[in-house]
Design a binder for these strands. Sequence first.
DNA 1: CACCAGGGTGGTT
DNA 2: AACCACCATGGT
Length: 217
Amino acid sequence: MIAALLQTLSAHHGPQAWWPASDRFEIVVGALLVQRTTWHNAKRALEQLRDRGALSVARLAAVAPRELERLIRPAGFFRAKAARLRSLARFIDRAGGLTALDALETGLLRQRLLEQPGVGCETADVILGYVFGRPTFVVDTYARRLFGRLDAPRTGLSDAEIKQRVEASLTDVDGLNELHALIVAHGKSYCRARPICESCPLRRRCGFSRARSSNRA
DNA sequence: CACCAGGGTGGTT
DNA sequence: AACCACCATGGT
């Protein structure tokens, strides 16, 4: 079921290559910056941080708050995100770096991440999957809509239920990471671009149709 | 011009 | 537990 979904989306959209050959801490920073923004804008902020030489745990934690706000401005919510980035960098630093956090069991690590300001379920799971290589399915707005439709008769699956179901039938880290990226790509290319998913690989069941009333069970 | 993008948080009902 | 307003820039 889930494996088939991955296969279908993969065949249709190709490899997504999220965070290709990227530094681990850079992925953490990117995960925060991209919240409720386009990757295009998050990437700009990331580049400015890189140009400033601030893309390491110690350097980022040392950047003056106002300066940090200025650097990440393109990513939006820059005041909140600057404070959270700073806080997160200091947390990782206190913990002894990302490699020290590698030793933590997944459940505990997730818990630690969720305690950090600005890190909710989605961001925590992105970091778990792409930074720490833990088998994790990231439930985002696209996944929510998709599975809400695929499991048509059932209404209101919680994020935790979606997460559990996917992780129960797909345990491969790379597969899970790729699935999340593919679901986002799928949502982007079919949700807004077309009123009805005529050429959608998942047909009308994909849940990204804008004509909600014409597609209800 | 209105709407939205790879969320999270705090307050209100 | 389900809503709500807010955060803010850049693209369409």
